[in-house]
Design a protein around this nucleic acid. Structure first.
Lengths: 241, 241, 241, 241
DNA sequence: TATGAATGAGTGTTCATTCAT
DNA sequence: CATGAATGAACACTCATTCAT
C-alpha cells in the first residue's frame, strides 16, 4: 500500500526513501507518537531494513533533522539576492523561507515543533540551524543600520533581541500560513516586512519606542493560587526588574 | 515518597494537586512522554484516584490546557490598564504576558509546544485561547489606527495578519526569554515594542513598506526533490552588501 | 492453563511464584533462551506484573541466583553434623549437597551451568556462594591434616587446590547423578568419599603421589594446525613449566 | 575491516577459518548470545557464505563441537605414553588434557559449558566425546586394579562412578586452571593425581572408605518448599571439630 | 475517599535466514 | 566463489487502564 514495493534498490536510494517517510511521519505525529512500524510501511520496506541503515529511532530522527535543516538553510541561502540592499535581501530571504516551509510542511513541523521537544541532542541540532539564520538576519539589521548611518551602530544586545524577534515572528507566521488556507508565501513575507521593517527603520533613525513612566513595581496582581506540587526544574526568568 | 501523603483531602484540593503535577510533567516531557505513573507519584496519590477524578490521560491533558489557558488569558486581561492609549495597553498586556510565561514555564511549554502537537482536540483548545488574545490585539491595532485617523482603518485582512505576526513574535520571544538566562519579562516586552510598534505606526500613518518590482514569479530555483544527504556545509550568511 | 490462575495474591507470594517459575525456565533453557513470556505464563501471571515486581530479566535472574545460592548453602550447612570428625562432617555435608541438587535440578543447572555463562555480575554471585563452600571444605581438610598430625600442616596452596578439586568433583558428580537414572544422593556421596578421602589420607600421612622422572619438556605433539582467526581475549595458562 | 579480506580461498581453508571464528565466538558468548553476524565478520566473510558452507547456526555449532571434540580426544590420546604403568598413563593423559584445554580456552568453554546447554543434539555430541575419555579412564582404573591383584577386580558400577568422578574432577580443574592466573597444566595434573590416585590405590588394595553407621534414613530437615527470600546471611563454615 | 493488584496492546530492537546477482 | 539487499518472527520492556477491596 502506498509506495509500490520496487524491490532491490541501492542503499543510497532506499535510505532517502526512508528519510522521506520518516520526515512525514515525524512531522505529522511527533517523535514519540511516531512508530517505526508506520515509517517502515510508508517507506515500503520492512522494519529491520530501517534499523540496518539508520540504527535507531534516535539516529533516524537525527538524520531527518540534519537533512531538513540543511535543506531549509540552503533554500534560504539560494533565495537571497546577494547584490541587493538589506531590505531587499531580507525580503527575498523571507520569501524563500516561507516558500520552503509551505512546500515541506511536515519537515517544518518536525523542525519547529517536534525537534525542540525531545532531548538536548535534537534541540541542539535545530538550534544550530536557527543560529545560522539568526546570524544572517543579525548581519542584515546591522548592515541596514550602517546604511542609515545616522547612528553608528545599534547596541549589540539590542540587535540580538531584534533578530530573535524577527526570526521568531517569521517562524510563527510560517506556522500560521501552514495552518491557514489561502495564505501564500508571498503574503506572509509581505506581512512580516510591513510589520517589522518600518519599525526597524525608526529604530535606526534614532526614534525608538520608549516605555511610559510607571510607579508601581510589578504587574500580575493575580495571586496565582495554584500551589505548585513540586518545583519546576529551572524557572529561568523570575520577573522583570 | 516525595510529596508527603496527606490523606483525605477534599476533592477540589486533590484535583488541583493533580493538575499541578500534570502540568509540570506534561510541560517538561510532552504529552506522549508523560506517564500517568509519574504524574500520580508527583501528585502524591495513587493512579486509580487520578482516573477516578479525571477519567483519562486525554481528559487530564484537556483539563490542564483549560486551566492554564484560562490562567494565561486572565493574567493578560488583568495586566492591561483599561484607561490607557492603545500602545500603553499593549505594553502593559505584553508585560503581563511575558511575566506569566516566565513564572509558569511548564505551563507555557505545555500550551505552546505540546498542546498543538497532539490531535485536533487539544490544538483547538489552545487555538481558542489564542484567538481571544489575537482578537484583543486586533482591537488594539484597530483602535490605534483610528487614533492615528490619518487612514480611516486598515483593511481587515491586513490587520488580522499583523495581529497574528505580533502574537507570534510574542510567543517566540516568550520561548526565547524562557531559554535565555538573564532576559527579564520587561526586556522581552520592550524588545517587542521596539520591534513592532514603530513599524505599525508607520503603517498607520500611510507609509507601508512596499515590495520591490520583480519580474520573475517565484523563487526557489533548487529542484528540491530529495536533496542528497551529503555535501554543502556552506553557511547561510556570507555578508550583507 | 498450567498453574491455575488464583487471582489477587499478596505481593510476596506472587513474587515467590515468579521466582519458582523463573528458576525452572532458566534452569531448563539457560539465560538467553529463557523468555519472559514463558516465565510469566508458567507463573500464571501476565508479563507486566513480572516487570513490576522484578524490574528486568537481569534482575530476575539475579534474584533467582541469590535465592537458590542461599538455599543451597543453607541446605549444606544444615546437613553438616557439627560434632563429628572431619570425614564425618564431609560425608554429611556431601549427602546434603547431593540431596539438595537432586531435589532441585533446575536450580542446580541454573547455578552451575548457566549463571557462570552470562556476565561478570552473575558469575560473581555464584562465585561468592562457591567460595563459601570451598572455604568450608578447606577447613575440613586442614582439620583432618591436624588430626593426622603426622605432618604439621599441608602447604596452603596445596590445600586450596585440593579443596577446589574436591568441590569440582562434587559438582561434576552432581551433574552426573542428575543426568543418570538410578543414582542416589547417597551413592554419589559415597563414590566421592571413596574416590577422594583415602587419597587425601595418604597425602596427610606423608605419602603423596610423585610424578615420574621425565626428560622431555612438553607433551602435545599435535602441531595444532588450526590457524586462529583472531586472538582469544585471554588465554590464561599457556603451558606447564 | 578486521581480518583483511583475502579473496578467493579454496573451500576447505575458508571453512576452517569460519570454524575458528565460530569456536571463538561460541566459546566466549555461548550458543544463544553468539550472532552469525559476529562470526561472519570475525571470519572475514559475508554471512551468506557461512550459510552456503555450513547450512545453519545449528549445523555450524555442531561442526564446531565435532572438530573440537576430536581435537581434544586426539590430543589426549597422543599425549598418553602407551608402554607405561596405569598411573604413568593417567599422568601423561591428564597433562595432555590440561595442556590442551589451557591452549584452547574458547574451545573448552564451548564444549564444557555451552554445548551441554542447548538441546539434546549438542549434549549428545559432547557426551560421546566424554564417553570415550571415561572409557579410557575406566580401562586404566581396571588395569591398575588388576596390577594390584589383591582384589580380582572392582565391581563394574563402582569403577564407572570412580571414572566419572575422576573425569569430573579433571573438568572442574580445567575450568579452575583456566580462570586462575598462574596455575599451569602441570600443576593442575599433579593436584589431581595427588587428590585421586592414592585414594584409588587404597581402594584397590582393599581399604575403601566406609560410611559411618547412621539410623536416620535421609538428611535435609529443612522443609524446603519456597525458602523465603529474606534472612539468613549466616555462612556455611563455622569451623571443624 | 483511596489503593494494591493486575493486564492487553503496543513499542523499539535483534536475529537467523534467504534471494538475486 | 561471493555478496548486497531484504525480511518474518521473535524478544525485552512499557503504558494507559481497570478491578476488587
Amino acid at each position: 500500500m502506498g509506495a509500490g514495493k520496487t524491490k532491490r534498490m541501492p542503499r543510497a536510494v532506499r535510505e532517502q526513501q526512508m528519510l522521506d517517510a520518516a520526515v512525514s511521519v515525524f512531522g505529522r505525529r511527533g517523535y514519540m507518537a511516531a512508530s517505526m512500524d508506520e515509517i517502515a510501511e510508508l517507506a515500503g520496506v520492512s522494519k529491520p531494513l530501517v534499523y540496518l541503515y539508520l540504527n535507531s529511532k534516535d539516529d533516524l530522527f537525527s538524520a531527518c533533522i540534519g537533512r531538513e535543516a540543511r535543506a531549509l538553510t540552503e533554500a534560504v541561502r539560494a533565495g537571497v539576492r546577494p547584490g541587493l540592499s538589506a531590505d531587499g535581501q531580507l525580503w527575498s530571504g523571507l520569501r524563500a523561507f516561507f516558500s520552503h516551509t509551505a512546500r515541506h510542511p511536515d519537515a517544518w513541523r518536525m523542525l519547529h515543533l517536534h525537534a525542540r521537544t525531545h532531548g538536548e541532542r535534537f534541540a541542539a541540532e535545530v538550534a544550530a540551524m536557527r543560529a545560522e539564520i539568526v546570524a544572517f538576519v543579525t548581519q542584515l539589521i546591522a548592515a541596514a543600520a550602517r546604511d542609515a548611518h545616522r547612528v553608528p551602530h545599534l547596541p549589540e544586545g539590542e540587535v540580538a533581541g531584534l533578530a530573535e524577534a524577527l526570526v521568531g515572528a517569521a517562524e510563527s507566521l510560517a506556522d500560521w500560513a501552514g495552518a491557514t488556507e489561502g495564505v501564500t508565501a508571498k503574503q506572509a513575507a509581505a506581512t512580516l516586512m510591513n510589520f517589522a521593517w518600518a519599525g526597524l527603520g525608526d529604530l535606526m533613525t534614532g526614534r525608538p519606542w520608549t516605555p511610559p513612566e510607571e510607579p508601581q513595581p510589578e504587574p500580575e496582581p493575580v495571586p496565582d493560587p495554584a500551589p505548585r506540587a513540586a518545583p519546576s526544574p529551572a524557572p529561568v526568568a523570575q520577573g522583570a526588574g
